[in-house]
Design a protein around this nucleic acid. Structure first.
Lengths: 236, 236
DNA sequence: CAGTGGTCTAGACCACGCT
DNA sequence: GCGTGGTCTAGACCACTGA
């Protein structure tokens, strides 16, 4: 791991533990330079990560102020797998694989994804349960030309950990959309819906080398859906 | 404007104009160093902005690849005012101010916002129309201890341009949530809703000095709501 | 191997806040 | 005036790609 990332993790940990509290000023960049025995630009790269994640706010002439980190923890936004969310948020959930099979290229990918047409895709349908309730239905489509076969045991655990850890795929970025759509019969059956709508989060997920390897359709019970984002203003 | 921002804007413009096309490699960092007559770190800051905005993908040993920039243009995510969205997306919309008045501190702020209790707030209710249809209802609450009075003419145009340009407030970051909620009578009347639900985007908006100055509740017709995000994977 | 991006350094000058 | 963060530089070494 590089230095600025280590410093970021260290400061993040100290903020989470309350060693630096809301409203406190972090040590100045010059002090951090000495503490970690690195150059100032390296300290600043670490502080920029804290800034982007909403941990601090910087003010010229004053210092870096620690922001409140509400009860919810990020990132509901971003590109994070469900298993990782569970871990970082302390949710205890269950995942049940309903389908794990190969399909000939389905229409939904033609319409909702940029994935180039291939003969067949690996299709995984999963239920996400929290406290015995099915809150999310996840439909994943993988391009088998890029992604090795994903066994059901892996799909019950973490697919991303498997692809990154075991097969060394470099998952890099995603294009996501969120819409609200009428619930299908499948939605109603599997999620025991009260409401006629579901929230649909669709993602095209890309590797480091810009290859599109996965499309995901994540269907949420709307009464339990909540998306949280920390956003910074940019020069428009 | 600083150098890396100027370089970013220049390269962004060239990508938008198709001077650099999807799949092309940008000139190498060394070449850009010469082109703009700056140091390499400065070039890299500009490229990082392109990276975060989803314009390029970098690969060690190869270069910076230009990504496709779909028809939709960001940022629907982030902290951008409706007027700015209109401009960057080429939407022609209308804004109609329904209410512009002072209220004693309303319950909704106690429940949905971190705004500290003050005697009264400025309340602005606006309709956003596109092609004659009301798509969004915006409810803004401003802390008058921080924000000068906002006249109705300004609310019909751009409040952020007014606060930043005229009063030099430094708008910095926001905490946002997206949920789906039952439509109120007001929603149904003003938006002529077919559906019993609306998408609600709530934001607490902060200044540079971490003061919370605004809460916004943006109520969307769910059949016309679409949220688009570009997300990068981070080390978890 | 040459060329690319990734990281890091030591130092400089500036703009801002506070006292 | 002093300490803070914001910007920029010139140079170094490393890891990776592709011929």
């Amino acid at each position: 791991m590089n230095k600025f990332n280590l410093i970021f993790k260290d400061l993040e940990e100290k903020i989470r533990q309350g060693i630096y509290q809301e409203g406190d000023l972090l040590p100045s960049e010059n002090e951090l330079t000495k503490t970690y025995d690195v150059s100032r630009e390296t300290v600043r790269k670490a502080l920029n990560l804290l800034l982007e994640h909403g941990y601090i706010q910087k003010q010229q002439g004053k210092g870096s102020i620690v922001l409140p980190t509400g009860q919810y923890q990020f990132p509901v936004s971003g590109l994070t797998s469900y298993k990782e969310l569970e871990r970082s948020q302390g949710i205890k959930g269950n995942t049940k694989v309903i389908v794990n099979d190969y399909l000939s290229f389905p229409d939904v990918l033609r319409e909702e994804s940029d994935m180039p047409e291939v003969a067949e895709v690996q299709y995984i349908l999963r239920e996400r349960l929290v406290n015995g309730e099915v809150l999310i239905l996840d439909k994943d489509y993988f391009d088998p030309a890029i992604v090795p076969h994903i066994p059901t045991e892996v799909a019950e655990d973490s697919i991303y950990a498997y692809l990154e850890g075991v097969h060394h795929l470099d998952i890099s970025y995603a294009k996501k959309t969120i819409t609200v759509e009428p619930a299908t019969t499948e939605d109603k059956e599997l999620m025991q819906l009260q409401e006629p709508f579901v929230v649909v989060v669709r993602s095209d997920v890309y590797l480091d080398d810009t290859r599109l390897f996965q499309h995901t359709e994540s269907r949420h019970r709307l009464d339990r859906f909540k998306f949280v984002e920390f956003a910074r203003r940019r020069n428009v």
